[in-house]
Structures are given as structure tokens and as C-alpha cells.
Nucleic acid binder design. Sequence first.
DNA 1: ATTGACATATTGTCCGACAATAAGTCAATA
DNA 2: TATTGACTTATTGTCGGACAATATGTCAAT
Lengths: 246, 246
Amino acid sequence: MSKNINFDKIAHQPAYRVVSEKIRNAILSGEIKTGELLPTETDLAKQFGVTRSTIREAIRLLEHGGILGRADRKRLVVTLPETDAVGRSVSSALLMHQVTYEELWQVAMGLEPLASKLACTTATKQDKQLLAENLVLTRDVMNDHDALLAAEIEFHNLLANATHNSALLLARAPLNELFYPVAWGEIIRALSPGERILVAHQHIYAAICDNNPDKAEEWMKKHMEDFRRGIEMGNLGFDQPVPVAP
Amino acid sequence: MSKNINFDKIAHQPAYRVVSEKIRNAILSGEIKTGELLPTETDLAKQFGVTRSTIREAIRLLEHGGILGRADRKRLVVTLPETDAVGRSVSSALLMHQVTYEELWQVAMGLEPLASKLACTTATKQDKQLLAENLVLTRDVMNDHDALLAAEIEFHNLLANATHNSALLLARAPLNELFYPVAWGEIIRALSPGERILVAHQHIYAAICDNNPDKAEEWMKKHMEDFRRGIEMGNLGFDQPVPVAP
DNA sequence: ATTGACATATTGTCCGACAATAAGTCAATA
DNA sequence: TATTGACTTATTGTCGGACAATATGTCAAT
């Protein structure tokens, strides 16, 4: 073996990546603030000294992450990434990993009771108001499978929002997009557990109004256990991969 | 008020989006399998009947989500999105939302004890082996702040990997990228709590080997509480936004 | 088995062009 | 006054073609 000199790998990044990183940094560092318009493509091209095509590719790279959106479907603005924007990347990833109902349920079991607990101390009047309205709605649509599913999902969302914890919101995004729609959809259709759902929601809501974190957490755990039983009893296997939506 | 006819909003998507969605669906539905090469840009352009520029923009859109990577830095391949690929989108989002240490800690408190518990029943011999090696490493670098930080982060990663739950891995991605590096970094530098870290890790490891979920969960909770105290005692406020890395 | 020379395929980048569409201005009109 | 219409302008979406840089493959020479 001859004596070797070790060179570092040279890191040649294509221009569109470099530009993308620069813009990303400018946004994250607050140099361009949320809500501000991004310079026009021709401007950017001049500034960076590259062609408009390159700029466009750089922008596409960021657009998917949700930190760029469009104000009027023409000019691009810097936007606060909403949970569902980011959530879709995560969902794709999970689907490709063939995530199972069980895996998602385990995460839900970690996050949803936590959300219930936290919401007790963080929920504003308006949060509670929205939850209350959701309860009424749920009762009203008890026999409409689709509407019931939507209301159920909304309840969990409202609850999560009431924590005002953006990290929690993002962490549970895949539950919203993959878990509840698919799994609850099947369960509700197969077992019609509308009453049990409503009772659990009511207890959680009451606990939040009473500022009783332990009770809120407990009832959410029960709720999620119901959920698991539903999956097991329904015709979808608990350890089966979540199917790709058509 | 005149009688109105309500038309649905027409959903005119730019071509690069449509193409991007089509490719995405082909990937998610398994039409193109993981590891396969994507057709060349010129091919795709012909197939979709658009220009290569359009194809390229469509591809960039997907590239960021991590479901496309490059085999040899030329041809694109369909890849399983790794946690850190997706994690970066999430991290950007959180930084823009000015997420606080407290918010991240709350999520960590929901997920890390859960991971400990699950790992007890899912960890393979190799997982345990890796954890054991990490413990040795941790002891060895006890006085090297940077190395200690790296070892600490690696421990939590190994633990999460040992659950073999991809949903959990993705949900905790932001902890890896934002929380531990920044917060632990500061804590370790300020308080040098090397011993306490090691002791906690050892107990968790022991619990996993003994197949004792409750003990594993408990010790991880203690560990995270230490963590919180560290943040509070250090000079970083618990309720302060996590700073953007330079 | 390694090297070198060569042809080929594919991506990265550039340029220039034009259509489609939002936004702004201003006059005409009911 | 408020709505409509015609016009201008700025900006994005899409096209087509061009060329350089780089991997890949082949074949001969050593």
C-alpha cells in the first residue's frame, strides 16, 4: 500500500441548490420577513448572476417546504409554513416506508393525551368555544358517516391547536393526514361508534374547562384505546401498512 | 341582491405542478419502485408533452421532499426519504414559527419516554449492541464537550431507531435537528452534567436489556426533567425561541 | 489489471422568445 | 357615484434550442 494523501471530497453543488440555500437563509434569518414579497425572478436572476431558469428551479425547491407561497397566484411571498404543507412531505415519506396503523397509533398515543393535558392550561376562551361548537356539530351528524368523521378529526385538531405549541402541531401532522382519515373512516363505517366518540370528547372538553389535566389525559387515553380496538375489530389489520389514498 | 349562480373555483394548476403530482403518484403507488432510476429528463418531457424546463421544475419540487435523490449525482433515483431529509423542512417551519425550547421539550416529553418503552420490546441484538457501544463512547469522551454532545444525541437516535417505528422517527426529527444540538450544547458547556447523563443512559439501557418498559420510561422521564432543569439553569430561557443556526 | 483514447448519454446552465394573467390608469357611461 | 371597458405594464408560465461538464461504456495498448 502506497502512502496516501487524503483529500476531502469536493462539494460541488449545482447552482440552483446554492441559490436555494441562500434564499432559505435569508428567510430564516429574517432578512426577508414573513409576508414580504420575494423579488421578481428577473431581479433575483440579476442579483445572483444566473439565469431565470436557475432561479426558478431554486424557488421550486423551497416552494415545496411551504416557506414560499403565492399572494395572488402570481408573485411569491414568504409565508409561515402551515402544518398541512409540511405534513404532506411527511406523509409521502411515511407511505413510502409502508408505515402501519400500529406505528401511527403508537405516536398518537404519545401525542394526543399530551395535547389534552397541555390544552388544559393553554386553551383560550375562543379555543373552548370552538370545541364546544364542535361537540354540538358532532351530536348533530351522528348518523352521517362522512360528516361524523370530519367532525371527529376536527375535534382533535382544535384540541391540538389549543395547545398553541407549533412543534406539537407539526409532529402530529401525519396523524391528521394518514391516520384519522383512513383508520377512523373504516372504523366509523364498520362499527358506528358515534356514541362512544361523543362521550369521550365531552369528557375531554369538560376536563379542559375544569382545568383538570389528569382527567383530560386519562380520557384521551381511553379514547385512543377505543380507537385501537376499532382498528382491530374492523377489517383492517393493526399491523398492516396504511394504504395509499387513490 | 340578484340571484346568483355559484360556480366552483376553477383549479388551474401550472404544468410543473401537474407533472410533479403525476410523478409523485407514480412513486407512491409503487408504479416506479424504490431504487429505480427515473426516466431521463428528455424522456419525461416527451412523455408528458412539455419542455425539459418544465420537467426540471417538477422534479425540483419533489427533490426537496426526499423521495427523489441521485444515484451518482447524475441520474435521479426514487429513494426512501430519510428522516433528516424530511426533518429539514420541518425544522425550517418550526424556526419560522419561532418555536421555543419549552414547546420542543414538551414534544420530547411525549415522544422520548414512549420510545424508551417501545424499544424494550422491539430492540434487536444489534440495536442493543450499538447502544452498549455508545455508552462506552460516552464514558470515554466525558470531558470533551463537543464529543459528549454528539454521543448524547446519538444515544437518543439509537434508541429511537430501536423502536423500528418510522412514524416515531419522523415525528421526533425536529428534536434531533433543533432541540438537542442547540439546547444540550448550551447545557453541557455551561453545567458539564456528564455524569448525570451517563447514569440515566445506563439505566435506560439496562431497562431495555431487562425488558422492563416501565423502568425504561421512568428513567427517560427523569432524564428529560434533568434536561429541562439544565435549560432553566443555563443562560437560555425556557420560553425563548430557538435561535436560527448560523 | 491498469491505463488511455474516444464516442455517447445525461444533466446543468444559458439565452431569447412569447402567451397568459394581475394590477394600474383613465376615460366612457348608466 | 359606481360600474364598465379599453389600454398599458409587470410578472410569471412555458417553449425551444444551444452548449459545457460530467458519467458511462467500449476498445485497444500496455
